[in-house]
Amino acid sequence: MSLRTDLGKIRGLGSAKEGVAHWWAQRLTAIALVPLMLWLVINIAHLAGADVKAVQAWIANPVTSVLLILMIVAVFHHMQLGLQVVIEDYVHTEWLKLASIIAVKFAAIALAATSLFAILKIAFAG
Protein backbone atom coordinates (compact mmCIF):
# COMPACT_ATOMS: atom_id res chain seq x y z
CA MET A 1 0.00 0.00 0.00
CA SER A 2 1.22 3.46 -0.79
CA LEU A 3 0.50 6.42 1.44
CA ARG A 4 0.88 8.85 -1.43
CA THR A 5 -2.16 10.72 -2.67
CA ASP A 6 -3.36 10.27 -6.24
CA LEU A 7 -2.45 13.87 -7.03
CA GLY A 8 1.04 13.37 -5.55
CA LYS A 9 1.55 10.30 -7.72
CA ILE A 10 0.51 12.11 -10.88
CA ARG A 11 2.76 15.07 -10.14
CA GLY A 12 5.60 12.68 -9.29
CA LEU A 13 7.56 15.42 -7.59
CA GLY A 14 8.18 13.78 -4.20
CA SER A 15 8.58 15.53 -0.87
CA ALA A 16 11.06 18.09 -2.18
CA LYS A 17 8.35 19.22 -4.65
CA GLU A 18 10.78 19.60 -7.50
CA GLY A 19 11.38 16.02 -8.60
CA VAL A 20 14.90 15.25 -9.69
CA ALA A 21 15.48 18.54 -11.54
CA HIS A 22 17.89 20.01 -8.99
CA TRP A 23 19.80 16.75 -8.53
CA TRP A 24 20.02 16.17 -12.27
CA ALA A 25 21.26 19.70 -13.04
CA GLN A 26 23.95 19.31 -10.36
CA ARG A 27 25.20 16.09 -12.05
CA LEU A 28 25.00 17.51 -15.60
CA THR A 29 27.02 20.58 -14.67
CA ALA A 30 29.48 18.36 -12.76
CA ILE A 31 30.06 16.21 -15.87
CA ALA A 32 30.55 19.31 -18.02
CA LEU A 33 32.95 20.80 -15.48
CA VAL A 34 35.38 17.87 -15.53
CA PRO A 35 36.87 18.66 -18.97
CA LEU A 36 36.22 22.41 -18.69
CA MET A 37 38.09 22.89 -15.40
CA LEU A 38 40.98 20.66 -16.48
CA TRP A 39 41.25 22.72 -19.68
CA LEU A 40 41.13 25.97 -17.66
CA VAL A 41 43.84 24.97 -15.20
CA ILE A 42 46.20 23.71 -17.93
CA ASN A 43 45.82 26.98 -19.84
CA ILE A 44 46.18 29.22 -16.79
CA ALA A 45 49.31 27.30 -15.79
CA HIS A 46 50.70 28.00 -19.27
CA LEU A 47 49.82 31.70 -18.84
CA ALA A 48 51.66 31.99 -15.51
CA GLY A 49 53.66 35.23 -15.55
CA ALA A 50 52.28 36.27 -18.97
CA ASP A 51 51.62 39.97 -19.62
CA VAL A 52 48.15 41.41 -20.27
CA LYS A 53 48.60 41.31 -24.07
CA ALA A 54 49.21 37.56 -24.03
CA VAL A 55 46.26 36.96 -21.68
CA GLN A 56 43.94 39.06 -23.86
CA ALA A 57 45.13 37.29 -27.01
CA TRP A 58 44.37 33.95 -25.39
CA ILE A 59 40.87 35.02 -24.30
CA ALA A 60 40.12 36.60 -27.71
CA ASN A 61 40.83 33.32 -29.51
CA PRO A 62 37.33 32.10 -30.60
CA VAL A 63 37.82 28.59 -29.22
CA THR A 64 38.94 30.02 -25.87
CA SER A 65 36.07 32.53 -25.75
CA VAL A 66 33.44 29.84 -26.32
CA LEU A 67 34.99 27.40 -23.85
CA LEU A 68 35.32 30.17 -21.25
CA ILE A 69 31.65 31.08 -21.71
CA LEU A 70 30.59 27.45 -21.29
CA MET A 71 32.85 27.12 -18.25
CA ILE A 72 31.42 30.25 -16.60
CA VAL A 73 27.80 29.15 -17.18
CA ALA A 74 28.49 25.63 -15.85
CA VAL A 75 30.50 26.83 -12.83
CA PHE A 76 27.97 29.38 -11.61
CA HIS A 77 24.97 27.14 -12.22
CA HIS A 78 26.69 24.27 -10.38
CA MET A 79 27.87 26.57 -7.58
CA GLN A 80 24.45 28.05 -7.04
CA LEU A 81 22.79 24.61 -6.92
CA GLY A 82 25.45 23.33 -4.49
CA LEU A 83 25.34 26.29 -2.13
CA GLN A 84 21.55 26.05 -2.01
CA VAL A 85 21.83 22.53 -0.57
CA VAL A 86 24.44 23.63 1.96
CA ILE A 87 22.18 26.50 3.10
CA GLU A 88 19.14 24.22 3.31
CA ASP A 89 21.13 21.86 5.55
CA TYR A 90 22.45 24.42 8.03
CA VAL A 91 20.14 27.43 8.07
CA HIS A 92 16.90 26.56 9.85
CA THR A 93 15.32 29.98 10.32
CA GLU A 94 12.86 30.13 7.44
CA TRP A 95 13.27 33.79 6.43
CA LEU A 96 17.06 33.64 6.75
CA LYS A 97 17.22 30.45 4.70
CA LEU A 98 15.13 32.02 1.96
CA ALA A 99 17.11 35.28 2.04
CA SER A 100 20.44 33.42 1.83
CA ILE A 101 19.31 31.28 -1.09
CA ILE A 102 18.04 34.35 -2.95
CA ALA A 103 21.30 36.18 -2.24
CA VAL A 104 23.35 33.24 -3.54
CA LYS A 105 21.27 32.95 -6.73
CA PHE A 106 21.44 36.69 -7.44
CA ALA A 107 25.19 36.77 -6.74
CA ALA A 108 25.77 33.78 -9.06
CA ILE A 109 23.87 35.47 -11.89
CA ALA A 110 25.64 38.81 -11.33
CA LEU A 111 29.10 37.19 -11.27
CA ALA A 112 28.32 35.11 -14.37
CA ALA A 113 27.04 38.19 -16.26
CA THR A 114 30.13 40.19 -15.26
CA SER A 115 32.45 37.40 -16.42
CA LEU A 116 30.63 36.92 -19.72
CA PHE A 117 30.74 40.66 -20.39
CA ALA A 118 34.49 40.75 -19.72
CA ILE A 119 35.10 37.78 -22.07
CA LEU A 120 32.96 39.24 -24.87
CA LYS A 121 34.53 42.68 -24.47
CA ILE A 122 38.01 41.21 -24.95
CA ALA A 123 36.80 39.06 -27.85
CA PHE A 124 35.00 41.83 -29.75
CA ALA A 125 36.48 45.14 -28.59
CA GLY A 126 40.02 44.00 -27.76
Binding site: Q56, I59, V75, M79, L83, V86, L111, S115, A118
Partner: peptide
Protein backbone atom coordinates in the same frame (compact mmCIF):
# COMPACT_ATOMS: atom_id res chain seq x y z
CA UNK B 1 32.78 23.19 -2.79
CA UNK B 2 32.27 26.25 -0.59
CA UNK B 3 35.95 27.24 -0.90
CA UNK B 4 35.72 26.99 -4.69
CA UNK B 5 32.63 29.19 -4.61
CA UNK B 6 34.64 31.88 -2.79
CA UNK B 7 37.49 31.29 -5.24
CA UNK B 8 35.27 32.15 -8.21
CA UNK B 9 35.51 35.78 -7.02
CA UNK B 10 39.21 35.65 -7.90
CA UNK B 11 38.41 34.20 -11.33
CA UNK B 12 35.87 36.95 -12.07
CA UNK B 13 38.29 39.61 -10.83
CA UNK B 14 41.02 38.22 -13.10
CA UNK B 15 38.73 38.23 -16.17
CA UNK B 16 37.53 41.78 -15.48
CA UNK B 17 41.11 42.97 -14.89
CA UNK B 18 42.18 41.37 -18.17
CA UNK B 19 39.37 43.20 -19.98
Amino acid sequence: GVALAVGTLLLVWWLVAAS
